[in-house]
């Protein structure tokens, strides 16, 4: 496929935006760098989540499981292998794990999938805790010389890769197949699409990305233990941010990530006990007021303007 002029323009703009984002660590503010890390982390997680859940409408709560597995890859391997290879290994393990989960659950209805992914993090956590009890360990120290800025750049690179990958998938047969599946799975099968295969392939993307994110962030934690690495709240935050922004567009989740990260940041520093309540309210707001996220709001506004302009002409 060839690139049109607008494709080229978008690519150049995206590259510029990336370059500007990459300058953040030179700003000198540790506080804003910390927020920056959180934002790029959730951008990678929520965007890859929406790549799968946007077209298929399956709600995955497996992010925490993949993320935790990723942190453990770094935790166990950072003394033996170079950091970059650990990220790769984490991605590979995440993708394989996602494929296994996908084969077991994606041919069934959405409810089964939600329940299974919700419990997956808990399942892996219990098994690792048990393994540690058997060997008498408690947690893992991850002592590396990787700085906060280094983590930020790694995550930024990962987010860029997610965007590029998502853009390419959107233009591919796989992307088209998923739009058809999202519309009508029976038609998809009768048009010659291997629906199960397409869904599993795509589910491997958020699996790999979440595991890589975990691997990159492990040095930030310094000390990792199962209840920290597999905190289920992460899965929910990712779902909220992606849906708040809108899962139907590649850039949608980003629109949700930035305001929600800032909101959670201010809530957790001012009212640390109320974060759960905020998450709950956010879910309800999405369902009742923003079913298509900010993206839907923008599109409606634009459609309304166009209609009004058309009426006047």
């Amino acid at each position: 496929m060839t690139l049109t002029a607008s494709d080229l323009r978008n690519l150049v703009l995206a590259a510029l935006a990336l370059a500007v984002c990459a300058l953040l660590p030179f700003g000198g503010s540790g506080y804003w760098l910390g927020i920056g890390v959180t934002i790029v982390m959730f951008t990678a997680l929520a965007t890859s989540w929406a790549l799968f859940s946007g077209p298929t409408h399956y709600i995955s709560l497996a992010t925490a499981a993949f993320f935790g597995v990723g942190t453990y890859v770094t935790g166990l391997g950072f003394e033996v292998l170079p950091f970059w290879s650990l990220i790769g290994i984490a991605g590979l393990i995440g993708a394989v794990l996602a494929a296994l989960v996908g084969f077991a659950t994606l041919r069934l209805s959405g409810v089964y999938f939600v329940i299974f992914t919700l419990g997956l993090a808990e399942l892996v956590r219990q098994v690792i805790t048990w393994g540690q009890n058997m060997t008498g360990q408690r947690g893992l120290y991850v002592l590396t010389d990787i700085t906060e800025a280094g983590i930020y750049w790694w995550l930024l690179g990962l987010s860029a890769a997610v965007y590029l990958g998502g853009w390419l998938i959107g233009r591919s047969r796989l992307g088209f197949a998923l739009r058809i599946i999202g519309d009508d799975e029976t038609v998809a099968a009768h048009s010659g699409i291997n629906t199960a295969f397409a869904k599993v392939m795509l589910f491997m993307v958020p699996g790999a990305v979440a595991a890589m994110t975990g691997a990159i962030l492990a040095p930030r934690y310094v000390y990792i233990e199962p209840s920290l690495a597999f905190a289920p709240i992460l899965s929910f935050q990712v779902v909220i941010m992606a849906l708040l922004g809108g899962a139907s567009r590649l850039w949608g989740p980003l629109v949700g990530v930035i305001p929600f990260t800032l909101l959670l940041e201010s809530i957790s520093s001012n009212f640390p006990n109320q974060t759960t309540l905020v998450l709950g309210v956010a879910f309800l707001v999405i369902v009742y007021f923003l079913p298509r996220g900010f993206v839907g709001l923008l599109e409606d506004a634009r459609g309304g303007l166009r209609k009004r302009a058309g009426g006047m002409a």
């Binding site: 047969r173 197949a177 058809i180 999202g182 519309d183 009508d184 038609v187 048009s191």
Partner: peptide, 18 residues
């Protein structure tokens, strides 16, 4: 059964692609 989110053309392209 048509694909509701797509245009007429894309509905037909779906059959051609797969």
């Amino acid at each position: 059964r048509l694909l509701p989110s797509m245009t007429v053309l894309d509905n037909v392209v779906a059959g051609a692609v797969f």
